[in-house]
């Protein structure tokens, strides 16, 4: 193996190791912070059922005792991690069901929503960005920029409510939340790429647009777009919480919302760990792939 390749693969391995280490540390820290925040939140040690006038003193005491369990949050967290290694994520306080089965039941819907939302947003953002770069018409460029700016100004919850009102799929709401973020970067990157001297020359020589795009533009913009892809996954997952909660979709986002309202420590801690894991994996993957692409270009 040539020396420069050996060096590249060793750098790649180092990068992957660094990302893995950061991922584990962040997930552990994120889970712990979530647990601490829930534990310190006002109303953690109470249960709405305490107000049921039909319950006698013994039953109210039993409810209070059940809520008052984890006094030392650090030892609770360590014990939870130990159990998690053996596949036991604990039981949800508010829903009374194993957290693992709740996540298993709800994750597919969220994954579907997020995946569809990302596909829709990326397709539309790239289509508008490319058409603006090809046409180079100020009016068209302004129109697409205004469109994406409009969606950027609308809060996620409003888009979710509009999708409920007009009976639109939740994935579309997620797509509209992600779209302006992707479009802004994609448009700028593509416009910049199409202004590069060798691409202007290629166009002047009459090369087909598809050849210019795939041979000359994509290699230039791919690493940066990959970084945006990682960020867009984060935005889509973040958007899934209000969209699912407001549209009444039974995914992990809705579960997180319910868990937060009910101060459901085991559920909220595991949902935080899961969301942190997915977003970090997306970001790290984008970074590693970008690194490979840059190495190949070099």
């Amino acid at each position: 193996m040539p020396r420069h390749r050996q060096f590249a693969s060793s750098a790649l391995l180092q990068k992957i190791a660094r990302h893995s280490l950061a991922l584990v540390a962040t997930v552990l820290l994120g889970g712990f912070l979530a647990a601490v925040l829930v534990r310190l939140a006002p109303g953690f040690e109470v249960d709405e059922r305490q107000l049921d006038p039909r319950l006698n003193s013994e039953s109210v005491h039993a409810l209070v005792q059940a809520r008052a369990a984890p006094h030392n949050i650090f030892s609770f967290y360590v014990r939870s991690l130990e159990r998690a290694i053996h596949g036991d994520l604990g039981t949800s306080i508010s829903l009374g069901q194993p957290v693992s089965s709740l996540l298993r039941e709800r994750a597919p819907l969220t994954l579907r929503l997020v995946a569809l939302g990302l596909i829709l947003s990326w397709t539309s953002a790239m289509a508008l960005g490319l058409s603006a770069a090809w046409l180079r018409t100020t009016a068209y460029d302004a129109l697409t920029t205004v469109l994406s700016g409009t969606f950027l100004c609308i809060p996620a919850a409003v888009l979710a409510l509009l999708s409920v009102l007009w009976n639109l799929p939740g994935a579309l709401a997620i797509a509209l939340i992600v779209f302006p973020q992707v479009h802004r970067y994609a448009r700028n990157l593509l416009a910049k790429a199409y202004n590069l001297p060798h691409i202007i020359t290629a166009r002047a020589k009459g090369l087909s647009e598809s050849r210019i795009l795939f041979w000359h533009v994509v290699p230039v913009v791919a690493p940066q777009l990959l970084a945006v892809a990682g960020v867009s996954v984060n935005i889509a997952i973040g958007a899934a919480i209000p969209v699912e909660a407001l549209c009444g979709l039974a995914g992990v986002g809705q579960l997180a919302w319910q868990a937060a309202l009910a101060r459901d420590l085991p559920l909220l801690m595991n949902v935080t760990i899961l969301v942190t894991l997915v977003t970090l994996l997306a970001n790290s993957s984008a970074d590693v792939i970008g690194h490979v692409l840059r190495s190949q270009q070099a």
Partner: peptide, 13 residues
């Protein structure tokens, strides 16, 4: 106005 768990905590604890 308080969210329900905070309200119950003030009322009962």
């Amino acid at each position: 106005t308080l969210d329900f768990p905070s309200l119950i905590e003030r009322m009962t604890q």
